[in-house]
Simulated assay, not measured.
Amino acid sequence: MPQAVQFEALQRIAADASLSLPAKAILFYALTREPGYRMSVADLTAMSPASDKAIYPRIKELMAAGYVTRKLIQAGCEYTVHVTPITAATEAGA
């Protein structure tokens, strides 16, 4: 895989019962892109039959689970995808 995501990490994500299958599909897609890939709703809707109205709730689901973080920028949003969920404790360095 381009980002060398370890098989064990993908297995852990696949087994995460708190995530819907569409959210897992988005996460798997984003994690297997080339280094430097910037996830965007436009890219996700271009590669799937889902509309942006279907994509946004899945991104919010991934954000709530800690797999995606969002940074507001002048041109919209920049999403960062994480193999391991980011939690408040992770961000605080605990």
Rank of each mutant, 00 (worst) to 15 (best):
Q11R: 14
K60A: 14
R70W: 04
M39F: 01
T32S: 14
F7A: 09
E61Q: 15
E34I: 13
V68I: 15
A17E: 13
Q6P: 02
A25H: 01
F28Y: 15
T45Y: 01
M39A: 09
L31P: 12
S20G: 01
P35V: 11
A15R: 13
T84C: 04
E91S: 11
V81D: 00
S20K: 05
A89M: 11
M47W: 08
S40E: 13
T32F: 05
Y29A: 09
K24H: 09
L21Y: 00
D16W: 01
R12E: 04
Y29D: 14
R58K: 14
P2T: 05
E78S: 14
A42T: 00
D16Y: 03
R12W: 07
S40C: 10
A30G: 00
S51K: 06
A46C: 02
V68K: 03
A30W: 06
Y79P: 03
P57H: 05
R12L: 12
L10Y: 02
D43L: 03
A92T: 07
A15Y: 06
D43W: 02
G36N: 02
R70T: 09
T32R: 10
Y67S: 08
L31Q: 11
A15F: 13
T90V: 15
T84F: 10
A65H: 08
A54I: 00
P2G: 06
A46Q: 08
F28N: 13
V41N: 00
H82W: 15
L21M: 00
F7Y: 05
F7C: 09
E34L: 13
P57E: 05
G76T: 09
A75N: 00
R58C: 06
A9E: 01
A23D: 02
E91L: 13
M63R: 15
H82M: 11
D52R: 15
I26H: 06
L44F: 09
A30H: 08
M39L: 12
P35R: 08
A17D: 04
S51N: 05
A75Q: 07
I55G: 01
C77N: 13
A23V: 14
R70N: 10
F7T: 02
L72M: 07
V83E: 15
A65F: 10
A50C: 07
E61I: 04
S48G: 01
P85G: 03
A15M: 08
Y67C: 09
L72R: 15
I55D: 06
V41H: 03
